[in-house]
Design a protein around this nucleic acid. Structure first.
Length: 457
DNA sequence: AAGTATGATTCGAC
DNA sequence: GTCGAATCATACTT
């Protein structure tokens, strides 16, 4: 075992010697003054070097004790030695003071460099870790890494954008998210700083140690550099762990935040009422325009996309089960009808949203005698509408009235014995029928077969 | 706990 | 982009 190592080392040294012979002869920077070798001619110096190197090589084949003894025999018997009984110190001292020391150190340094490089040279400059890059990018994107300002809010905004449309009342969630992100960020930076500080301290410590040791053993600057590199790698792997766990924390926070957004919260009763009012008053064409949606959103304190969602859900659910919504429809239809009546009576503007998309609202139509249709409904006291008296503005109320009419007669869950009308605004194929078509209202006989597929908004 | 209501999301069609 | 339709996930009700 030892033998093998020794031979290996020797072979390395052998290689090194060949390569180094020039440097040694030409006065290596780490070498002492060439003329200081022997004070005399170069021949003696060369002889000296060769001697020493020869001995170094032979040492590799010897046991430690033998080697020590040999070194001792070479360097010990110096006249200026204090002659202490402990053999180690004098030997060390002798070594340190030897005039050949710089040269030897230099040679040994080069040998070490060569051997170390040949052993681990391949893995020295590793490419940037893709995982680390990913982590860095994510931390940067999340606003954890990088500049302090705007990081958290940017991430929160991004998260909000992912969910599509900011809810007006989740600003609290936003701030919560921001606060938590800031917390993560702070921990991350504190830890990072700690690690960096520790890394620097440790590096400095090691460098000092190596410098200190370089007086007693051959340590090349490259070796120190390499050691520093190793330390940095170790610390960067710790940093990577920190980054990874930070990323995980951010992901968890993010998913929780997004989940929280998905958490359904019912709209306020007022909001639902406003939406229902619009829906049932525009039952013929319940597709609010962008403007109408914005207005509704503002009124309800929700977003436009929520309004869209609501109408989408409402339409499909209403269509799927009209009977279920009958009561609700009646209530809202009656309500809007009442407001219409009062506004018509008092000549004031109806309070319903302006509905540019109300299909064909200006079209003339005739109504069956409402006094027959709204018996028993509060507020419907037999006011009669004539087509000539109805302004386009109250088309929505007309829709409501017609809805009440139809609902109160035809679309109970089997409750209406006398089916008189088709659904007010739905065509037989499931689309929303143009409500302006008088026939659907005035001609009960036409029934659901009447198809007017104006579903555009 | 089970059932229902409801807001949000997703997917394909247009 | 919007829409309908199906679906999810939660809130609410029974």
């Amino acid at each position: 075992m030892m033998d093998e190592q020794g031979r290996l080392l020797q072979s390395h040294i052998g290689v090194g010697m060949g390569a180094l012979s020039g440097a040694v002869g030409m006065g290596h920077p780490h070498m002492g003054p060439p003329d200081g070798v022997d004070g005399g001619g170069g021949g003696g110096g060369k002889q000296d070097i060769g001697d020493i190197l020869q001995q170094i090589m032979t040492i590799t084949d010897q046991s430690l004790d033998e080697a020590q003894a040999r070194w001792c025999s070479i360097y010990q018997p110096r006249s200026d030695d204090d002659g202490l009984s402990r053999p180690a110190r004098p030997r060390k001292h002798a070594l340190n003071c030897h005039r050949m020391k710089p040269a030897l150190f230099s040679v040994l340094c080069e040998i070490k460099e060569k051997t170390v490089l040949s052993i681990r040279g391949a893995q020295d400059d590793d490419p940037p870790d893709p995982q680390l890059m990913r982590l860095d990018n994510m931390l940067l994107a999340e606003g954890v890494a990088g500049p302090e300002k705007g990081g958290g809010s940017a991430a929160a905004a991004a998260a909000a954008a992912v969910a599509g449309g900011a809810n007006a009342d989740n600003s609290a969630e936003h701030s919560d998210y921001r606060a938590k992100l800031a917390q993560i960020r702070q921990i991350y930076h504190t830890e990072l700083e700690k690690y960096e500080q520790a890394c620097n301290e440790f590096t400095t410590h090691v460098m000092n140690l190596l410098r200190e040791q370089s007086r007693t053993r051959p340590i090349s600057p490259k070796e120190i550099e390499r050691m520093v590199g190793i330390i940095h790698r170790k610390f960067s792997s710790i940093q990577m762990q920190l980054k990874q766990s930070t990323c995980e924390a951010v992901m968890i926070l993010r998913s929780r935040f997004l989940d929280a957004r998905r958490k359904r919260r019912n709209f306020s009763k007022q909001a639902t009422e406003i939406l229902n009012e619009y829906f049932y008053s525009h039952l013929s064409n319940p597709y609010p325009s962008e403007e109408a949606k914005e207005e509704l959103a503002k009124k309800c304190g929700i977003t436009v996309s929520q309004v869209s969602n609501w109408f989408g859900n409402k339409r499909i659910r209403y269509k799927k089960n009209i009977g279920k919504f009958q009561e609700e429809a009646n209530i809202y239809a009656a309500r809007t009808a009442v407001s219409a009546t009062s506004s018509v009576h008092h000549g004031s503007q109806a309070n319903s949203p302006n509905t540019p998309t109300s299909a064909g609202s200006s079209g003339s139509f005739s109504m069956p005698n409402p006094s027959d249709m709204f018996l028993g409904i509060p507020g419907m006291n037999g006011d009669s509408y004539s087509s000539s008296g109805v302004t386009p503005n109250i088309q929505s109320q007309v829709d409501s009235l017609r809805h009440v009419m139809s609902q109160s007669s035809a679309y109970g869950d089997g409750m209406a014995a006398n089916q008189l009308y088709s659904p007010p605004a739905m065509s037989a194929n499931g689309g929303w029928q143009d409500a302006t078509t008088p026939s659907s209202v005035t001609s009960p006989t036409e029934g659901p077969g009447s198809v007017h597929s104006d579903t555009s908004n």
